[in-house]
Amino acid sequence: MFALKDLYQEVIVDHNRAPRNFGHLAAPTHRAEGFNPLCGDRLTIELAVDADGVIRELAFDGQGCAISVASASLMTEAVKGRTLAEAEPLFERFHTMLTTAVEVDLLNGDDSLGKLEALAGVRAYPSRVKCATLCWHALRSALHGETGATTE
């Protein structure tokens, strides 16, 4: 049996209570909204990307469950200072972690997801994967110059 505390780890509870990079940027270069029609959650991602393609600043706003808020908060920390080219594969590895039934050993060396690994427990709750990936879908839309994403 999967223990509840594997899902609601300390890191997740903490980021839900006190989300990092929460709010809006003064001068975003990219912006997109994410919407999860299943639960009605919405969030907005704003980015400030510099000429070298580095994500200098980002912020998110909106409301959602602990998984989606913590995931967005952790994501902002994970991609800040990275280039656009680095953000995409990070999402892919994150997505693989959430949707692969077995614990794949991709979480060390260069492939480490760092604090994002706190969300690995979501894997046991297929109906909650969309909560954890909503922010990433929104980030991807923003980076692709789109204005919105849904998890459907």
Partner: peptide
């Protein structure tokens, strides 16, 4: 506590409840 988290947590106590907009988005 977001309803979605409530749903998952009470499920671990064996309790099945519905969370979300209940197919009545205008009510929400």
């Amino acid at each position: 506590v977001h309803p979605h988290d409530l749903g998952t947590i009470v499920d671990h106590h064996g309790v099945a409840i519905r969370t979300g907009h209940h197919c009545a988005m205008p009510v929400m």
